Amino acid sequence: KVTYHVPNEEFARKLYKKAVDANLNVEIRVENGQFIIHIE
């Protein structure tokens, strides 16, 4: 399980798409202006 803290929405979207394309379980949320992405 990996967690990324991404300040940039564009990068967060790319990361999310890559994980989904790889059939990984992804959860994304915004906290204090940062995008928190959990990948399992």
Rank of each mutant, 00 (worst) to 15 (best):
H5S: 06
T3P: 05
N25G: 06
Y16G: 05
N8W: 13
H5N: 09
I36E: 03
G33F: 08
I37R: 00
G33T: 02
K17M: 06
E10I: 06
N32R: 04
I36Q: 04
V30A: 05
I36T: 05
V26M: 03
E31S: 07
P7M: 14
P7G: 13
E31Y: 07
G33L: 04
V20D: 02
V20P: 01
E40S: 14
N32T: 03
V6F: 10
E9M: 06
R29L: 11
P7S: 14
I36H: 02
L24F: 07
E40R: 12
A12R: 04
R13V: 04
P7T: 15
N23Q: 10
N32H: 07
N25V: 12
I28K: 00
R13A: 07
N23S: 07
P7K: 14
Y16D: 04
E31R: 06
A19P: 01
I28N: 00
I36W: 05
E40P: 03
I39W: 02
I37Q: 00
F35E: 00
N25C: 06
H38L: 15
V26P: 02
D21Q: 12
A12V: 08
A19I: 11
V30S: 05
H5W: 14
R13L: 12
V26K: 00
I36K: 02
N32W: 12
Q34M: 15
I28D: 00
K18R: 09
I39F: 05
I28M: 12
Y16W: 06
T3L: 09
H38Q: 13
F11L: 14
K18Q: 13
Y4Q: 06
F35G: 00
H38M: 15
Q34N: 10
H5F: 12
V30C: 14
N8P: 06
E27F: 11
K17D: 13
A12P: 02
A22N: 08
Q34D: 03
Q34G: 11
I36N: 00
V2I: 12
I28H: 00
V26H: 00
F11G: 05
I28R: 00
K18D: 12
L24E: 01
T3Q: 09
G33N: 04
I39V: 05
V20T: 07
A12I: 10
E10C: 15
K17L: 09
P7V: 14
D21V: 10
G33K: 02
E31M: 07
Y16P: 03
D21Y: 08
V6T: 15
V30M: 11
Q34L: 12
V20G: 02
Y16Q: 08
R29D: 02
E9Y: 10
I28F: 08
Q34I: 15
I37K: 00
E27L: 08
F35K: 00
K14L: 11
F11M: 14
I36S: 04
I36P: 00
T3D: 08
T3F: 07
H5T: 11
N23A: 08
V30T: 04
N32Y: 06
G33S: 02
V20L: 13
V6R: 02
I37Y: 01
N25M: 12
Q34R: 08
N32V: 05
A12T: 04
Q34P: 01
V2E: 08
V30I: 13
A22T: 03
V30H: 06
K14T: 07
N32E: 05
F11T: 14
Y16I: 13
E10T: 03
F35Q: 01
V6H: 04
